[in-house]
């Protein structure tokens, strides 16, 4: 068996030829009604209604909330050293419900991370990472890592003392990684110390690069979960 065939079999076994629920049509239907029924009417096993199985959904809801509130913050936030702090202050004191929106984003970030971590524990403890779900696990852990990074980059944006020094310390920690540490710091910092370039880089990473990447990974992840179903109970 050639290596290519091996790769094809690998994905077939885990996605393309895998069906968990007898009678559920995984093929792309050729009309909208069937499509919606496929999406809405897939039966889930009883054990999967347990709250522990809702953590992934909670994390996703929190992610959607971060996008909604993040877009609203972006309507006033200005990513330059001169204007960043002032614009956050402006959101907090002048904009209608601004402190609520920022509060939702800052607290939502914590809930989001907490939900992903707990969700990861659940997946680990129920052994749901086993074949055929290895790839789903890998994607999930990537999302966890990217989300922590999302929180780290977002934290710099208010550009106050807390933000500045948290980033300085965080980047110094990154700098201790063997071999690539220095390169990482150079790339993220964009200068000899945390400065204007760092703010620009963190901003674009925070609002464009990571959200898009996370969305892409989640899309694939959800497709796989649909196909593979929820893993058996304990």
């Amino acid at each position: 068996m050639g290596i290519i065939q091996k790769v094809i079999d690998f994905f077939d076994e885990r996605y393309f030829k895998y069906v968990d629920t007898p009678g559920w049509k995984p093929t792309v239907p050729n009309n909208m009604k069937d499509f919606l029924e496929g999406v809405m009417k897939k039966p889930i096993p009883d054990y999967a209604t347990h709250p522990m199985y809702c953590l992934g959904g909670l994390a996703f809801a929190a992610f959607l909330l971060q996008i909604a509130t993040g877009i609203l913050l972006g309507m006033y936030y200005k990513p330059t050293p001169e204007a960043a702090y002032e614009s956050v202050k402006f959101i907090m004191t002048q904009v209608y419900m601004g402190s609520l929106i920022r509060g939702l984003h800052a607290w939502g970030a914590n809930i989001f991370i907490a939900a992903i971590v707990l969700h990861t524990f659940r997946v680990f403890l129920t052994g749901s990472y086993k074949k055929p779900r290895e790839l789903t696990w890998v994607l999930g852990v990537s999302v966890l890592g990217l989300s922590l990074f999302e929180g780290f980059t977002g934290y710099l944006l208010p550009w106050d003392q807390l933000a500045y020094w948290a980033t300085t310390v965080g980047l110094q920690i990154a700098g201790t990684v063997p071999v690539v540490g220095d390169i990482i710091v150079q790339l993220l910092q964009g200068g000899p110390t945390v400065g204007p370039n760092t703010l620009s880089r963190f901003y674009i990473i925070h609002v464009v690069l990571l959200p898009l990447t996370i969305m892409g990974i989640l899309a694939i992840k959800f497709l796989m979960i649909r196909r593979q179903g929820i893993s058996g109970g304990l």
């Binding site: 609203l72 309507m75 402006f90 002048q94 904009v95 209608y96 419900m97 601004g98 929106i101």
Partner: peptide, 14 residues
């Protein structure tokens, strides 16, 4: 309505 008012200009802005 909250979002609409959040995004629209306010007379109190500096």
């Amino acid at each position: 309505p909250v979002v609409l008012r959040y995004v629209s200009p306010s007379p109190d802005w500096p």
